[in-house]
Design a protein around this nucleic acid. Structure first.
Length: 880
DNA sequence: CACGGCACGC
DNA sequence: GACGTACGTGCCGTGT
């Protein structure tokens, strides 16, 4: 029988606490902390959406003392004071609930638990479904067939619902026995004493056996263990009292009836103003806040002119220039219009006008006409597609903004504008729509204004951001490195890389055959046909049909990842075949089919896009296709590289990669003598690490020791945790932790660097690289262990990875210059983090090899040498 | 169309 | 003592 009423009871204090600690200390534009309110709101919206309650109430604790203090004066004693950053948010949470028209209630002398317990008991007449939301496990005692308790798990909106069965499954006892368990084990957070020496395990064992505390105490004689017996005897009364303290009352004298919790939903009109005040723009949008509300401030009037004929005085220097493209992939993007802004005014130049104007094209190509832009690389490539070379790029506010703070989103002009307090430009989505419905506005005047607003904003922000770069001592990084690099990347993207489609197709056909055979074998072994690519179906086959032991679970079911399957190898023939199927399937879908899809038909080339403003460490990323994850580790995958060749007959592919660049950087910035020595004497760094970590001579280093040492080095470079290291080596977390401390003992300079880097982050709020790249780490002071630890590892790792990124970027800019200076025909094609790939005519091979080594090795001067390995051949495969 | 699971590189 | 643990991109399957 479906029940008529659905009652949701929320433990307000608990959820607020939870939200506060789960989120970084956000504040709105007026400096009011809002993270708890924000998290609370998210939770509330989710509950309303998921549960659709007919009745709802949020209970709060009232005052400092409760009836429990009469029983035990020190109840909740020693508890840390609520941080003021949280306290000040409670009034907003109350306002929020009022805006949502949700009943809230608190009662002198009682805790939120008691209000919830009492109301839940009111609703026990069989007509009610009750759900209690809290972060406090104590409330599990309220679970009955009618009452579910939903505990927050991690983050804000991830929760776990407990029914009677689930309580039993988790603790092995019934919900009302929770209080007996608590009575025995106590609760340090509430200062409930319990019985000293009895923890969760013992408590559960005893309660399972005897049922209640009282029965346990009656049967002390038969309990085994002299010490336990003694403790129980001595603390009888304390145990009974603890149980009393832990018991939630169902008879609090509340003055609220079930009827009063009736809920008819909310009206956005009362919620939007509050969201606006708090700065909850994403939530506003989620609730369908319309544009007027989203853009609360009237955009200031902008004077601009739509140009029908280009006049000389419109194109002065400096100017900002918008080259508008709508398609994400700018290689094939159409240009829908231009806008220019400068001291003379702001002008919309329709494509039709621009196309006809020789003068405009000349201006675009004029090196001396300084241009301020947003994402100049996109414009450069798009114009290149029209046969126009864009010159004179002077300032890119997207790049500048990335250097000032790489963690901000920077997809469009409006993002940067918002960050620097300008709200005079619309987001693209508001003008063009999104997804399948994305299109130019019907009215060209709308487009004109949008582009002009962008142009105007870019022009204004350039000066401001230039100033900020100076303050941060990032002007060199910007003007000498990232700006020129953008142009180098544009040229690489435009030039593209030749890929032999027929080679890929042949490999694809081979894979098809192997995959078909594997699929048949797997289905035969399973005894049933199913989709091997579906983790869900595969999980059911392996762990239910074939009864293999499930090693790990994911949120949605059994995990079937490689490490799980590897543990099952040998238990069933099917496993190995699945592993091979996965490996080959990945090759086929991502690398064969994926690459074939993006080969340009007429030229046989692929044109990736490098994202220069995304990675938090300063690295580049690559999309469409991603050329930075082409297989190399396993032979079958490495063969893909056969398809990457030079674009002209007789030319070669040359690859130059930095050897151990991150560890060399670490040696330099940490000034660890041991590590510096290792590189100065050209030792194998992993072997050296193994010698020091395991305290053995070079000749005694086994391959296993070297493998472990290599993983530790890997961990240092990538900032992984003891957990991460344990996963990659298949050892326990404790062992991994020991490796790490042993490593740090052997390299005291590194240890000191790690400490310094964290305190630098705490002190400045950011860490930086050799060339002054920054990464802010606001969570370094978080009280949330997780967030803080992550920030600490990031503080140690980012200067290493980021400096390595600085170096290779510098090498690219220098290399581009050298190729021009030396009048070489060779082309730089790609970069893969620590590697540069070129195509080169045979007669330039020797010269290029020389130059590449020289340029890369001297990109910056470190206290250890930089070493570069160069290889070449007919394809990327041979250049190894 | 968004999300989760998985896998590739550095 | 929990928490959920390098950064990216892209594929597939699943559920809305």
């Amino acid at each position: 029988m479906a029940k008529t009423n659905k009652l949701v009871l929320i433990d307000g204090n608990s959820i607020a606490y939870r939200a506060f600690f789960a989120l970084p200390l956000l504040n709105n534009d007026k400096g009011i902390y809002t993270n708890a309110v924000y998290g609370f709101t998210q939770m509330l919206l989710k509950i309303l959406e998921d549960e659709k309650p007919t009745h709802i109430l949020v209970a709060f604790d009232a005052g400092k003392t409760t009836f429990r203090h009469k029983t035990f004066g020190e109840y909740k004693g020693g508890r840390q004071k609520t941080p003021p950053e949280l306290s000040e948010q409670f009034p907003f949470i109350r306002q929020l609930l009022d805006a949502f028209k949700i009943k809230r209630y608190e009662l002198e002398n009682y805790e939120a638990d008691d209000i919830i317990g009492t109301l839940a008991s009111y609703a026990a007449d069989g007509n009610w479904d009750v759900k209690v939301f809290t972060g406090d496990k104590d409330l599990l005692q309220l679970v009955t067939p009618d009452v579910e308790v939903v505990l927050t798990r991690k983050g804000i909106t991830e929760v776990e619902a407990y029914t009677v069965e689930q309580v039993n499954e988790r603790y092995g006892i019934t919900p009302h026995q929770i209080i007996d368990m608590k009575g025995l084990m106590g609760d340090p957070s509430d200062n409930i004493p319990g019985v000293p020496g009895v923890g969760e395990k013992t408590a559960i064992k005893l309660i399972k056996q005897y049922g209640t505390i009282e029965k346990v105490l009656d049967s002390i004689d038969e309990i085994s263990g002299a010490k336990l017996k003694e403790r129980l005897t001595e603390n009888k009364e304390q145990a009974i009292m603890s149980k009393e303290l832990a018991t939630i009352t169902k008879e609090a004298p509340i003055e609220v009836s079930l009827e009063e919790t009736n809920y008819d939903g909310y009206e956005t009109s009362s919620i939007f103003p509050l969201f606006k005040e708090l700065g909850f723009n994403s939530l506003l949008e989620r609730l369908g806040g319309d544009e007027e509300i989203l853009q609360d401030e009237e955009k200031e009037e902008l004077n601009f002119k739509t140009v029908t004929k280009i006049e000389a005085d419109m194109l002065t220097s400096p100017s900002s220039i918008i080259v508008e493209t709508l398609t994400e992939d700018y290689h094939k993007a159409k240009i829908h219009g231009f806008a220019v802004s400068n001291d003379a005014g702001t002008f919309y130049i329709p494509s039709s006008v621009a196309d006809q104007s020789e003068e405009f094209h000349e201006w675009l190509q004029d090196q001396n006409q300084k241009k301020r832009m947003f994402d100049a690389k996109r414009a450069h490539v798009a114009l290149h597609g029209q046969g126009i070379v864009l010159n004179g790029i002077d300032f890119d506010i997207q790049l500048a903004s990335y250097l000032l703070n790489p963690s901000e989103s920077l997809d469009e002009v409006a993002d940067v504008a918002r960050q620097y307090g300008k709200s005079n430009v619309d987001v693209n989505e508001a003008v063009y729509g999104k997804g399948a419905k994305k299109k130019l506005p019907e009215d060209e005047a709308v487009l004109a204004e949008h582009l002009c607003r962008k142009a105007h904003t870019v022009f204004q922000l350039s000066d401001l951001l230039d100033e900020k770069l100076k303050e941060n001592e990032q002007s060199d990084l910007f003007y000498q490195l990232e700006m020129p690099l953008a142009l180098v990347l544009a040229k690489m993207e435009e030039f593209g890389v030749k890929v032999k489609s027929d080679t890929l197709q042949k490999m694809g056909a081979d894979l098809d055959i192997q995959l078909t055979a594997l699929e048949k074998d797997i289905h035969d072994l399973a005894g049933v046909s199913f989709n091997i690519n579906s983790p869900k179906q595969l999980g059911e086959i392996l762990f239910e049909k074939l009864n293999l032991p499930p090693v790990k679970k994911t949120k949605t079911g059994y995990s079937t990842s490689v490490d799980v399957l590897e543990k099952l190898e040998g238990k069933h023939e099917i496993i190995n075949k699945i592993l091979i199927y996965r490996q080959l399937g990945k090759l086929r879908s991502t690398y064969i089919e994926g690459l074939l899809k993006v080969v340009k038909e007429d030229t046989g080339k692929i044109h990736t896009r490098f994202n220069q403003v995304l990675a938090q460490t300063g690295r580049l990323s690559s999309i469409d296709p991603n050329l930075q994850n082409i297989p190399i580790r396993l032979e079958a995958g490495r063969k893909i590289r056969h398809a990457f060749v030079a674009s002209q007959p007789g030319w070669k592919i040359l690859a130059a990669d930095y050897s151990q660049i991150e560890l060399r950087v670490l040696a330099h910035i940490s000034q660890d003598e041991n590590l510096i020595e290792a590189f100065k004497t050209e030792m194998d760094v992993h072997t050296k690490t193994a010698m020091d970590v395991f305290h053995v001579e070079e000749s005694e280093v086994t391959s296993e020791m070297r493998r472990h040492a290599k993983a530790v080095n890997f961990g240092i470079v990538y900032g992984i945790s003891d957990y991460g290291l344990s996963q990659s080596l298949g050892i326990t977390r404790k062992e991994a932790g020991e490796f790490i401390s042993s490593y740090l003992d052997s390299f005291p300079g590194v240890q000191q660097y790690m400490k310094d880097s964290v305190s630098e982050a705490k002190h400045n709020g950011f860490v930086s690289t050799l060339l002054h790249r920054r990464r802010y780490l606001p969570e370094i002071n978080s009280r949330n262990f997780n967030l803080r630890s992550f920030a600490e590892r990031t503080a140690m790792n980012t200067p290493i990875q980021g400096t390595a990124a600085d170096i290779i970027k510098k090498a690219m800019v220098d290399m581009d210059q050298r190729l021009t200076d030396e009048k070489l025909e060779a082309k730089m094609l790609l970069t893969v983090h620590d590697e540069l790939i070129f195509e080169v005519p045979e007669n330039e091979l020797q010269k290029l090899e020389e130059i590449v080594c020289e340029v890369m090795e001297s990109a910056v001067e470190l206290d250890v040498p930089l070493k570069v390995d160069v290889n070449w051949g007919d394809s990327w495969f041979e250049a190894k």
